[in-house]
Design a protein around this nucleic acid. Structure first.
Lengths: 96, 96
DNA sequence: CAACATTTGTACGTATGTATC
DNA sequence: AGATACATACGTACAAATGTT
């Protein structure tokens, strides 16, 4: 079961909402919704778009940060890593 | 003697309570009370509904998990498998 | 400089579920 | 049966840094 960029979060399913959101964002990044070194929507914006609590958004972002897909700049935003497409859930290789 | 969705547990009969509950739940799933990928009531809820100890509920769930009818997601819930209707106990079912 | 908005960081409390003892 | 632990999610509030007006 793959996640698409336009999917909504299913709160009653077996997959946790933060995992779903992570895969949704991953799909949108892979599709090129936001270019490398560009900021994705703010946490507050993602809360508005997808409905979850901010805690859930942050958890989803954390997954992608650990996968090297995103990186966070405090008080600035969350950005798409340069080689975000290469990074997959398997090996978590993040550079700092 | 078949079990129906509305049956109660008979604690004085020859069939163990957990077996009865398993068949009750199986009937409810077959009847479509919960769709595939949807969660069945929580263990605590089933305790309330049918009266047994939680141990009994868990044992019943275990039977259906081994039959491929249900699957458990830790910290999330117990869900109906997609092809739950196909899976039947058969005579080769394993006991534990 | 001051005031404000934006964004991430952190913390607390509540609720639900399973896991374990 | 009951207690405790852990994971997840929601809501709220405030702090800190940055950017804008």
């Amino acid at each position: 079961m793959e996640f698409g960029p336009d999917d909504q979060i299913d709160y009653d399913g077996p997959v946790t909402p933060y995992r779903q959101l992570a895969e949704i964002l991953r799909a949108r990044i892979a599709r090129g919704d936001w270019a490398p070194n560009r900021a994705i929507p703010s946490e507050a914006r993602l809360v508005q778009e997808y409905g979850p609590a901010r805690t859930t958004v942050r958890r989803a972002i954390k997954v992608l940060v650990e996968d090297g897909v995103l990186f966070v700049v405090p008080q600035r935003g969350t950005f798409v890593a340069k080689r975000s497409a290469d990074n997959r859930p398997g090996e978590a290789g993040q550079e700092s």
